[in-house]
Simulated assay, not measured.
Amino acid sequence: MKLLNLLLIVCLVQSGCDSSQNQTDVTPPLTEKKRLLTAPVHKQKDAQMSLDAEVHKEMDWLVRSGFYDKTDLMRVFCEEMYAPGDLDETQVSAAIDARLAAHRGEQENWPTVTDCDRLDQAFERMEKRGLITIQNAGNTQTDGYEIFQVYLEEHPQPDTVIGYCFYHNQDLERAVGGLPLYLAFGPVDPQDEETKGVEIGNIVREELERVGLEVEWEGTFNDRLRVPGMVWQRR
């Protein structure tokens, strides 16, 4: 009996008996279609708790970005950024109303033409030169390129498109916070990046500088263009 018990103990120690250290975590593939305005990561909160500093900080930059209205913001905070039911919707609604009103008040002191207006003008000029331009395109460069491909498929004259220029949500957040705005660019066909990528980059640089925005760029496809010193004021 003692020998049997000893053998059982040795077996348990060696096998780990379903120990988590012997298991491999498997992440299911992402199949949900991406949206342009999205904040997909749920943050854990105690149910119906008061809005804390983190919520107000996120709300502040999203409002100042100029891309989100009341409906967008309610969806972001009550369905996407936080799980449904985690935040009190009445409190969220009141906080959004207050921040939107403050943002409208700030606009009274803005110049007639802002840096964001100049950026819009530059993007419009790029479109006339054959680029598809996208602002706030997903959350990553991969998102942005996938969205570009969708726009290309829907373009009325796809043969006239020679490339793209976009910035994504993380680029936007940094720019709203006072850091340089980073822009991704490239030709339609990724196989042409080394031969035509610089050509597209020069179009982007020329149009940004034409409207009065400063550009930093090393002149290669592997270096993203940057717009430093940009004051983010989007109505």
Score class of each variant (00 low, 15 high):
150 V>G: 00
155 H>Y: 15
141 Q>F: 09
158 P>D: 06
89 E>K: 15
158 P>M: 06
120 D>K: 09
174 R>S: 11
122 A>Q: 05
124 E>H: 09
163 G>Q: 10
108 E>S: 02
96 I>M: 12
175 A>V: 14
89 E>G: 05
87 L>W: 13
174 R>P: 04
115 D>C: 07
111 P>N: 02
166 F>Y: 14
147 I>P: 06
184 A>F: 09
167 Y>V: 07
102 A>D: 01
123 F>N: 13
134 I>D: 01
133 T>E: 03
166 F>C: 04
162 I>D: 08
134 I>N: 05
111 P>G: 03
136 N>I: 10
128 K>A: 15
184 A>T: 12
101 A>Q: 13
113 V>M: 07
157 Q>L: 10
168 H>S: 05
111 P>C: 05
117 D>F: 03
171 D>R: 03
118 R>P: 07
121 Q>I: 00
84 P>E: 10
137 A>C: 12
164 Y>A: 11
147 I>H: 11
99 R>D: 13
175 A>H: 07
174 R>I: 00
158 P>R: 14
89 E>A: 14
118 R>C: 09
154 E>S: 10
112 T>G: 01
144 G>Y: 02
95 A>H: 11
111 P>A: 01
166 F>M: 02
178 G>F: 07
98 A>H: 12
130 G>K: 02
128 K>D: 07
109 N>A: 11
178 G>E: 01
115 D>E: 01
104 R>M: 07
169 N>K: 03
102 A>F: 02
170 Q>I: 07
177 G>A: 11
179 L>N: 02
164 Y>E: 02
109 N>D: 05
145 Y>I: 09
83 A>T: 12
135 Q>A: 15
159 D>N: 12
136 N>H: 15
108 E>K: 08
123 F>V: 08
165 C>W: 05
138 G>Q: 09
137 A>W: 04
143 D>R: 01
108 E>R: 06
147 I>K: 11
111 P>K: 02
111 P>I: 05
123 F>P: 01
83 A>M: 06
162 I>C: 14
90 T>P: 03
96 I>L: 10
162 I>T: 15
119 L>N: 08
132 I>H: 01
138 G>R: 07
174 R>K: 15
114 T>R: 02
160 T>I: 10
98 A>S: 13
157 Q>H: 14
165 C>Y: 08
160 T>L: 12
101 A>C: 07
119 L>K: 10
176 V>Q: 03
165 C>Q: 03
149 Q>N: 15
124 E>T: 12
87 L>E: 13
172 L>S: 05
130 G>A: 02
90 T>G: 15
132 I>V: 14
90 T>W: 04
126 M>R: 07
162 I>Y: 04
183 L>K: 03
117 D>Q: 01
84 P>R: 13
124 E>W: 08
95 A>Q: 09
132 I>K: 01
88 D>F: 07
177 G>M: 03
89 E>D: 13
162 I>L: 04
175 A>K: 08
157 Q>A: 14
154 E>Q: 15
94 A>H: 13
170 Q>S: 14
150 V>R: 00
136 N>T: 13
131 L>M: 09
135 Q>G: 15
141 Q>D: 13
179 L>R: 05
117 D>T: 02
153 E>D: 14
86 D>Q: 11
142 T>F: 07
169 N>D: 00
87 L>A: 13
165 C>F: 06
89 E>M: 11
131 L>K: 06
160 T>Y: 06
114 T>N: 05
165 C>T: 03
